[in-house]
């Protein structure tokens, strides 16, 4: 298995606050990596740095021969890295289909000529995209897939989460970053969602996923390897069972006596 993403000495400082401290880690192609750690340990900051929302203070992020730490958010998305957000960031007044197509931006034709004048060609592209969007959403929810032209505001939290994940998947990325997908869901709903993600992954060989999660049974079930962060540093790495048994990890979560 070859390495897809490799961070080397990645740091992120906000003034005096060190959110990421000399972090080095790697993700293999097709792997599901769990990123865990107490609140404020730098997990979401890590996502924001490798997706270009924050500019890293120092360090490199190698991804297929490119350095993500020196690229803009747009370039990183075009290179095939997509994400979901911890708090839902859907455009609620727009339809579900619209929201999915926002995630598909790099594969749509945005020229004025194509969109305003060549409406026949536009219709062909639209119909292709509609079929693809419906097929993807159907993997997650049959009932949602027939409601694509309803406003995103009209569906419940679980469906919104599903739409967000579909939005991140529809452009067929190579690396998917999931930021607490189970937040606000019941155990049963979370389990269903994870099953759906695993099904989608079977159709996208090579797709690597980094998942931030507080539900340890989710981490245990779907990840192949875990990395534990504390105060912006990696304190442990390995399969879930080993990580969970680690003394330093337990101290980070529960505190020392």
């Amino acid at each position: 298995m070859s390495t897809l993403l490799a961070c080397d000495g990645l740091s992120m400082r906000f003034g005096g606050l060190v959110a990421l401290n000399q972090l080095s880690l790697s993700v293999n192609e097709g792997e599901i990596l769990g990123l865990i750690g107490p609140n404020g340990s730098g997990k979401t900051t890590f996502f924001n740095v490798i997706t270009g929302i924050y500019q890293a203070s120092e360090g490199r992020v190698d991804y297929r021969g490119q350095d993500l730490a020196r690229m803009s958010a747009q370039e990183i998305y075009r290179a095939g890295v997509t994400r979901t957000f911890q708090r839902s960031r859907l455009c609620l007044p727009l339809s579900i289909f619209d929201n999915l197509m926002i995630g598909n931006h790099r594969r749509l034709d945005h020229s004025l000529w194509f969109n305003l004048i060549r409406r026949g060609a536009f219709q062909a592209q639209f119909e292709g995209q509609y079929a693809a969007a419906q097929a993807l959403v159907r993997t997650f929810s049959q009932s949602l897939s027939v409601r694509l032209f309803e406003p995103a505001a009209s569906v419940n939290m679980i469906d919104r989460r599903r739409i967000e994940i579909c939005r991140a998947l529809i452009s067929q990325p190579t690396l998917l970053l999931l930021d607490e997908p189970s937040a606000g869901m019941t155990h049963e709903e979370t389990r269903e969602l994870m099953d759906d993600i695993l099904i989608v992954r079977e159709h996208m060989p090579g797709l690597a996923i980094i998942i931030i999660e507080h539900e340890m049974n989710v981490i245990e079930r779907i990840t192949e390897r875990c990395i534990v962060l504390n105060y912006g540093q990696k304190i442990c790495e390995g399969p879930y069972a080993r990580v969970a048994a680690d003394r330093e990890v337990q101290e980070a979560y529960l505190g020392t006596e």
Partner: peptide
């Protein structure tokens, strides 16, 4: 659609290359 996205959420726009 791109214009609507720009109006509604610039952070999401950046994450999806808009």
């Amino acid at each position: 659609l791109a214009l609507d996205a720009v109006r509604l959420d610039e952070t999401a726009c950046a994450a999806f290359g808009i």
